[in-house]
């Protein structure tokens, strides 16, 4: 059995896809792409797919992760192309690597979020961020399945800043953009909790709903507050295996096995 880890996005209007919606769409894409899935045992077998830490409905994401189990070997990149073509635009499959390590879910220690606040003043936002960070704890409320819950939104926040460049050109004046690095904790602190915290501590109340996007999630470097690629260790392990298997005189792709010849029709 081969396990492949994928990174996917929720972009544009498809950020309104709920996680359940995504699951159904993805499992249908697996069927259309004729991926040789491994199935769970039992009365109603399900294809083996593990999802990690899905973003809330309505927030965009560049960095969602899942893992699938296959009964036959496939080349991860070819598989990625095939699946990406089979998914609606916006739910894009952007990265694939064969799983050679355990514990992907545990490596998702923190997330980087971009929070776009249309109509908010940048100086005011920067002041609010300072007040929030200076506080020891910031209690916020959120409605959960079991009713209203009060918890601290401050401790999980590793970094929070107002940025000038959202990576897609300069920011116009009528918009403030926050970048948030938040540690995954229980209860989970989500971007809207931090926004509640900013409203509670510094009265920051933007006129229109914020547009929130997860930019990355993965291992957290405690010193720098940066989040690194959670698939890096699988990639390194793959390189090592390829190097070892290839040896000095072997063709480089030998470890890919029979799937290297699989027609994928995607090109």
């Amino acid at each position: 059995m081969q396990r492949i880890r994928l990174r996917y996005t929720k972009r544009g209007r498809l950020r309104f896809t709920s996680h359940r919606d995504f699951q159904r769409a993805f499992e249908r894409a697996l069927r259309r792409a004729e991926v040789p899935m491994a199935y769970s045992a039992g009365f109603t077998p399900h294809p083996k797919v593990s999802y990690a830490n899905a973003a809330p409905t309505g927030t965009g994401s560049e960095a969602e992760y899942l893992e699938i189990a296959l009964t036959e070997q496939r080349d991860p990149e070819k598989l990625r192309l095939l699946l990406d073509e089979s998914m609606p635009t916006g739910l894009d499959i952007v990265d694939a690597v064969e799983a050679r390590t355990s514990g992907l879910a545990e490596r998702l220690e923190a997330s980087v979020w971009q929070i776009r606040l249309p109509g908010a003043d940048r100086t005011e936002a920067a002041g609010a961020v300072q007040t929030f960070l200076a506080a020891g704890t910031v209690e916020v409320e959120r409605r959960t399945k079991s009713g209203m819950r009060t918890f601290d939104s401050r401790a999980a926040v590793k970094r929070l800043e107002v940025v000038d460049d959202a990576g897609d050109g300069p920011v116009d004046d009528a918009c403030a953009i926050l970048r948030l690095v938040v540690r995954h904790s229980t209860p989970a602190v989500r971007p809207d909790d931090v926004l509640s915290g900013l409203r509670a501590t510094a009265d920051l109340a933007p006129p229109v709903p914020a547009a929130v996007t997860r930019l990355a999630q993965g291992p957290l470097d405690e010193e720098t507050g940066t989040v690194t690629d959670p698939l890096a260790s699988d990639r390194e392990a793959a390189t090592a295996v390829r190097f070892a298997a290839a040896g000095p005189a072997s063709p480089p792709a030998v470890q890919e096995g029979p799937s290297a010849e699989a027609p994928d029709g995607s090109a």
Binding site: R13, L14, F16, T17, S18, D21, T57, T89, G90
Partner: peptide, 8 residues
Amino acid sequence: KPIQYVGG
């Protein structure tokens, strides 16, 4: 269920 209004 906003997804029902976005098409795609």
